[in-house]
Amino acid sequence: MSEHEHERVAAVYDDFGRRWAHGTSPLFEDWATGIAADPAAVARIAALPRRLQQPNLVFAAARWAGCDLVPYASWGSWLAAHWDAVVAITETRSTQTNEPNRCATLLPVLSRIDGPVALLETGTAAGLCLYPDRYSVDYSTPSGRLRVDPVAGPTTFALACTVDDEASVPERMPEIVWRRGIDLDPIDAADPDAVAWLATLVWPGPDHDARVARLRGAAAIVAAERPEIVRGDILEVLTDAARDAPSEATLVVFHSAVLLYLDAAQRRRFADLVGGLGAAIGRRVVWLSNEVAGTLPEIDARLPASLDSSQRFVQTVDAVPVALAGQHGAVYETRPFAR
């Protein structure tokens, strides 16, 4: 294994700890920066296929294998002793984090679309984000809290999101008349083992404790609905999956933290595919994206020069940046893009 590959892995883990886990999951920050500074750990991870090297996957696999949530000084030794078991889990699992709280950052856009809406999510996992209209949401605004409930009434749990402008809070739920997902390996929300794995992917720490309860509450709703999720590569099946959307509805193609798993050429192909989807299927299409900065150059070119997007997605509508959205849906900020 080349020295360059070791340096790359160390940089990935250091960045994960210092930029993404910092301030939100102290334990994962400690584990990630600990690995980055541990040549033996870096070498073990660098020897894995790229897909298995992801910090989220390695950490979740270790937790699935029964590790204690202890500092790296102890956890690093445990990881070395149980490395084969951890790798075996990474080979059969994936980082299909399905965070329903991201729906709180989708609703400001979806609720402002006139008329019926059809949803098509790429990288949908279990489909928990296909039901933004079925969950109660508590929005914290500069002037106080505002709650938005489903038409059928409040749910036993609520999503939570802090917004920097009260105008972002939806006045109503969108009228969603059709839903479909696409995923390489769909998850059944009715499968207890699958939901338990999704819960294991939730980061440890007080900022994340409520996420597990929301995930399980959302999974129960989705399990009762049983959404249609097409198994396949989004680059290959997107157009066919979109053709069945009702012609009278606005089709919204959306995704969160999906394009980072594609290389630059695949991202370009996906952007071109979505950009031409309306013409291909003969109806109105809105492209709603929550991805990290650096995903597509044409979007980066539209970002304010001094923008700090740490721990946030850049939300775009038809490739135009409109907001920063917390990676787990906890914040939604439009002021950086106010004109």
Rank of each mutant, 00 (worst) to 15 (best):
V12Q: 15
D209R: 08
D30K: 11
A167D: 15
R180W: 07
L307N: 02
E298F: 14
L288A: 09
P49A: 03
L107H: 03
D308K: 04
A81F: 05
A249C: 04
V177A: 05
L27E: 12
H6V: 02
A40I: 09
D114N: 12
P116R: 08
Y72N: 01
H4R: 00
D272N: 14
H6S: 08
A158V: 12
E291V: 10
L307T: 07
W203N: 07
G153K: 05
D300P: 00
A323M: 13
R339N: 00
M1D: 13
A257W: 08
R147H: 15
V285N: 06
Q311P: 01
L110N: 07
R231N: 03
W197N: 04
G326V: 01
R51D: 12
H255D: 08
V320Q: 14
T105C: 08
F28S: 13
E225Q: 10
V274Y: 03
V9Y: 12
Y261Q: 00
E99Y: 02
M1R: 10
H82V: 05
D207R: 11
A257D: 11
Y135H: 10
D133L: 00
A293V: 08
E29T: 15
A60V: 00
A241T: 15
A293I: 03
P304E: 07
P321K: 09
A220Y: 12
A330H: 14
G275R: 01
A41R: 02
P174L: 04
